[in-house]
């Protein structure tokens, strides 16, 4: 046990706080500057969509800049999760690698839509139909994260249930396994947004937006907390 990579506790703590700061800045940019929270209805006509980007255009574009600065916050946290996973794995830590790689690539679902919102806002006087394309592309990109996140979560779930260390000092307690499993199950609601423009299954609806986003932030807060707790214990143990 505990013979995996021996990364510095200070470095890992720094990356966790980098991720938390990034997430906080992203939330500020998204909610207060870009103001896509709650999301615009998926059946909005083109001229009203264009208005989303042309009204308060400068504030929106500054929001985009802040969103791009902070939108990579999933990368450092994924790295720390991987380091902690690798401690518990025997041999080549394949679950940790899967988690780290999918987390790093998965961050694209967070920052690329912001970049496309920037493109949509860049020329407020172009024909509304063209802005609509960027709008729909970015929103469906933002919502349908299914390609990578379930794989990222899989290894975390596996380690939560298979590890040998006690729950109260672990970065991967069993309850986190169930929370992560629920998040994985609910991630299947996201792609439904491709089929619906109104109701609970559209991109501003319960299943594609509200549940996955609430669960993601609950999970993010939970794993930051368990990681920091585990690092405290590892430092005390001199690991």
């Amino acid at each position: 046990m505990h013979q995996g990579p021996n990364a510095s506790v200070g470095g890992q703590r720094f990356m966790i706080w980098l991720a938390i700061a990034g997430a906080a800045l992203f939330a500020f940019a998204y909610i207060a500057m870009i103001r896509f929270f709650p999301p615009p209805p998926a059946d909005l006509p083109a001229d009203q969509v264009a208005l989303l980007y042309s009204a308060h255009n400068v504030r929106f574009r500054i929001g985009v800049i802040l969103g791009l600065i902070s939108g990579g916050f999933l990368v450092p946290i994924s790295i720390v999760i991987s380091v902690q996973m690798a401690r518990l794995e025997k041999g080549v830590p394949i679950w940790a690698i899967l988690q780290g790689v999918t987390g790093a690539i998965g961050s694209i679902f967070i920052w690329l839509p912001v970049l496309v919102w920037g493109v949509a806002a860049f020329s407020p006087d172009r024909p509304p139909e063209l802005t609509l394309i960027f709008h729909e592309f970015s929103w469906l990109f933002y919502i349908t994260t299914l390609a990578l996140f379930p794989m990222q979560l899989l290894g975390i779930i596996y380690l939560c249930f298979s590890k040998d260390e006690p729950d109260n000092v672990s970065a991967f307690p069993r309850w986190l396994g169930y929370l992560t499993a629920w998040q994985l199950v609910q991630s299947f609601g996201g792609p439904m947004a491709v089929l619906f423009k109104t109701g609970l299954f559209s991109w501003n609806g319960l299943l594609p937006f509200w549940i996955p986003f609430s669960l993601f932030f609950a999970w993010f807060a939970a794993i930051c907390w368990t990681l920091l707790r585990a690092l405290r214990c590892q430092k005390a143990a001199g690991a």
């Binding site: 069993r174 309850w175 396994g177 169930y178 929370l179 499993a181 629920w182 199950v185 609910q186 109701g199 609970l200 319960l206 299943l207 549940i211």
Partner: peptide, 25 residues
């Protein structure tokens, strides 16, 4: 384990909302 019941009640709550919205529609 307690954890699985958290997941199950969470899922059932989500589906209950869906069922209620279906009946409303």
């Amino acid at each position: 384990e307690p954890g699985i019941w958290l997941l199950i009640f969470g899922e059932m709550t989500v589906f209950a909302v869906l069922f209620a919205s279906f009946l409303h529609a």
